[in-house]
């Protein structure tokens, strides 16, 4: 119970802190608006295929996430509050607290991108199978957050944080990106829910492997 209440308190602290400082929110929102507007201007009156649209959808989410999700640890490091957290919380509490905060942030981000995409590309971005899309967004967000959290913890200790994050994240996220793009195309093409089961199994495997590995690694990353 004490680990759960500590994790909840840490998430609450991070949400309150984010609402006051806008460390990640502003960066995320600006990136979403800028990239979607750029895509809109580039396409002009062209009608892209579902494959192209789903690819661009996840590219927007990938780069936006890269600009915002690292803040959970980088902001603690920059403000010098890492040691304060080390004194009051165990590494597992910090890991799961930051992971769940990033999950919430990624879900909000995907929701914002989906809404904007639906408005801007109303004619070509039509979700034919909402169940596939919903599960893909949920599992994709969990996968993104689990990979982004441990990479953020590693990057926060490095000197060249800005460039290191996307460089480290891309190879780790490539499997996730390919799978979510594939599943999103199926949702836009109107395929049956069963057709995406293989993709969901890959995503679930990715989430478990990434979260489990990160949990084991985090103690060493966090302490020194």
């Amino acid at each position: 119970m004490s680990a759960l209440s500590s994790t909840y308190a840490l998430i609450r602290k991070d949400i309150l802190s984010e609402l006051r400082t806008r460390y990640a929110l502003n960066a995320l929102l600006m990136f979403v608006v800028t990239t979607v507007a750029t895509i809109l201007f580039a396409l002009r009156s062209d009608q892209p295929t579902p494959t192209v649209l789903s690819g661009m959808y996840w590219v927007v989410i990938f780069f936006t996430a890269m600009s915002g999700l690292s803040r959970v640890f980088v902001s603690e490091e920059e403000r010098g509050t890492t040691m304060t957290l080390q004194l009051v919380a165990s590494p597992s509490v910090v890991y799961f607290g930051k992971l769940l905060f990033n999950v919430a942030l990624t879900l909000s981000l995907t929701l914002a991108v989906t809404l904007l995409y639906t408005i801007v590309f109303s004619t070509s971005f039509t979700i034919q199978t909402p169940s596939i899309f919903a599960v893909t967004v949920l599992l994709g967000s969990l996968g993104f957050a689990s990979a982004a959290t441990i990479i953020a913890a590693i990057v926060a200790k490095a000197n060249t944080r800005g460039t290191l994050y996307p460089v480290l994240a891309f190879p780790v996220l490539i499997v996730l990106l390919m799978t979510v793009m594939n599943a999103t195309t199926k949702a836009l093409d109107g395929e049956e829910f069963g057709a995406a089961m293989g993709d969901f199994q890959i995503l679930l495997g990715y989430i478990f492997a990434m979260t489990g590995g990160s949990y084991l690694l985090f103690d060493f990353v966090w302490k020194d």
Partner: peptide, 9 residues
């Protein structure tokens, strides 16, 4: 001196 508290609170 190197232990910091949260400025935004």
């Amino acid at each position: 001196p190197y232990l910091q508290l949260y400025d935004e609170f």
